[in-house]
Structure formats: structure tokens, C-alpha cells
Amino acid sequence: MTSWLRSSEKTLEAVHLPLGHADYATTYRLQRRLHALRSHGEIVDTVLTVEHNPVFTIGRSGSALNVLAPPEILQQEGILVYEVERGGNITYHGPGQLVIYPIIDLRDQGHDLHRYVRNLEQAVINFLSEVGVRGRRHQGLPGVWVNSYKIASVGVYVKHWVTRHGLALNVAVDKAHFGMINPCGMEFEVVSLNELIEQPLTLEEVATGLITKMEPLFGWRFTRANPHKFWEG
């Protein structure tokens, strides 16, 4: 069931880099550096997992007009705003949200943007299913939903067929922060995984679970890397 979108049966080496808690700007620079290395074939597919301090990021189709809170409130809450090159509109990252940044070569995944986004969503859906939550897609609205509530958002950038940015899964987020934006330029409510299950999960547990679900979908065999060496240089 998990292999239906695979483009080849070949197993690919991949690295999981669990960053723990790291600020947005530093992680962004790391993504760019790894993207350049992956584009030149100097590293294998690498998947970062991270939790950020509160930020709003505005994608290529977005507008600062979708920040609803006045600047003084953002300052009071310590929320920074970044314009980034990923697709989509505005989104929120912050404590209690697992962010996944796959830096991977889509030439090994069938040169297919649609398949890539569907596989990211499928990893979330498969993981949710394992913990007893029914996640699903909404036609024309990338991301993963539980009923009419959004639990995971997607926003990707691809250059030389290598990806950066990725996916954010709400595990235990501060919804007041989401209320300060008009997410994706449309109105819907978000939900966190821990609201839906009896035993709350930590972000680390969710990261491990999700990475495990990504493996068969993308044909990877992960090794886990120590983040410290990646922060250097």
C-alpha cells in the first residue's frame, strides 16, 4: 500500500538530521547550503526535522496583507516575519509544530512535483493512521486535513530538481498565533495532533514516526546524523 507511488525499486541512501529546536533564519541558511551540496551531488538526500520559534513566513503567492495582527503585537509575542521562495501563501511555524525540510533530488523520484507533494502528504496520513487519526486530502488544497481542520501544511521550492522547504505538522501549537494570520489567504481552522489522541506525543516521537513512514514512500534507507557537524561551516 505504501509503495504505489514509488518510481523505482532501488533503495536510496538518505540522512535524517534531527535538529531539535533551532531558529528559522539559521535553519534557512542550513537548508540553502545543503541544497547547493545536494545539487552538486556532494551529499545524499537529507531530511531535516526541526521546531522553530514563532515565525510567519510568506511564500511566493502570499502577501504581507495576510498578517492580521499589528506590528506591536508581533513584537510583543516575539514573532518574526520572513518572505521566502517556497510556493504558497502565508503560514505559521512555532513551538509544538514539527517542521520537515527534505533536501532531496526529485530526479530519483520520477521528476514529478505532483507525486512529491502527494508522497509528503501520504507520509503524514500513514503516520496519523498509526496513532488512530484519520487524515485526508482535500481536492485542490495541498496539505493534510482532519475533517475540515488543517493538521499539516505543504510549501516547497525546487531548483535543479532539488527540493527545499517542505511540510509542517501541528502537534501541540498555540492557536492564538495562527489567529494572527489569514493562513494561505483563506479561512479555515487548524488542529493539533495531541488534541485528537489520548496519550500526547513529543515532537521527537512524531519526527521518528514520520521519518519511518517516509522511508518506503521515497525508497529511502535512513541513517541518523549528528546535527552538530552540519552547523559548522
Binding site: R86, G87, G88, P142, G143, Y157, V158, H160
Partner: peptide
């Protein structure tokens, strides 16, 4: 880089 196009919340250069 010449242009960016977008589909399904994905920017492609």
C-alpha cells in the same frame, strides 16, 4: 534562473 512557476504550493525554477 529565468522564471519561477508554481503548482500545488511548489515553486519550480
Amino acid at each position: 534562473d529565468l522564471l519561477e512557476v508554481e503548482t500545488e504550493k511548489t515553486t519550480f525554477v
